[in-house]
Amino acid sequence: MINLHSRWMDLRRLDELAANDTEIHRLNPCTKIVTTAIFLIVVASFSKYELISLFPLFLYPLTLMNRAALPFSVIAKRVFATMPFVLFIGIFNPLLDHTPGFQVGPFLISNGWISFFSILLRFILAVTSALILVATTGMDKIGSALLRMHVPKMFVIQLMFMYRYLYVLLDELSRTLLAYSLRSFNETGLPFRVWGPMLGQLLLRTIDRAQRIYQAMLCRGFSGEVRLLRYNALAKKDIAYCLGWSAFFLAARIYNIPQWLGALLIGRY
């Protein structure tokens, strides 16, 4: 449990990475948001049983991680942390859908399993691209870009505060758990009976602390506008970036690139 504190420090890595300065970081935030959105739409638009044709899309997150110097482990760790959700979403497919899909040697793979892995892949693609967006842009810039794109201010502020207070909540949680673990001997994990009081405490303390932070922001003139020191204006390279990737996403959506590559190999040799 004591480990939680270091985990929480680790959580903020995304913000630290966002302060880096690479060619991807320097792109206009609007460009990155739009490109990510197109990517997500394309990923979601594949049919339920699509598996192989999803693979070329991994080029996008991998290229970005490479160009923006994002450590693979930081992103991978966060994707794994969200994995339980998708397992619950997809786990019933193999149980309910037994129609035969294709055969690998003696094994018959049912469509249920194919759709399960399809969901898994799409989930990894989506979460990775969203994490990359945050790690290369930073939440404050995303907020200001959304405002520029005329997203209603109320939504943007909700989003920014949620992100900010998430840290506050985790910070409080790590301290509460530490205090608990220091006075509970030989206990592993949190017994069920203390969950109620602890969550209640946590909620109240977080609300208090969130209130104080909000007051501190108000004291320094916060009025809901997100103002930034640096704003990267839309340049030609931004448009090229967005159009280039979009073209690739569409190509990957329309043509089954792995099949085509395979045919090319078989056809030639």
């Binding site: 913000d15 630290e16 966002a18 302060a19 930073g138 939440m139 404050d140 900010r164 602390r209 104080r212 932070i213 007051q215 501190a216 922001m217 320094r220 003139g221 916060f222 009025s223 506008e225 103002r227 930034l228 020191l229 640096r230 704003y231």
Partner: peptide, 29 residues
């Protein structure tokens, strides 16, 4: 100046935090 500095510092970097007030006052970057 708040009792708990952690409540007061909420931006990702020190510089952004110190510039937060002046920017909200509408000063140019």
């Amino acid at each position: 100046v708040f009792q708990n500095s952690d409540d007061q510092l909420f931006m990702p970097t020190v510089f952004d935090d110190v510039a937060f007030g002046p920017l909200n006052m509408g000063l140019p970057p």
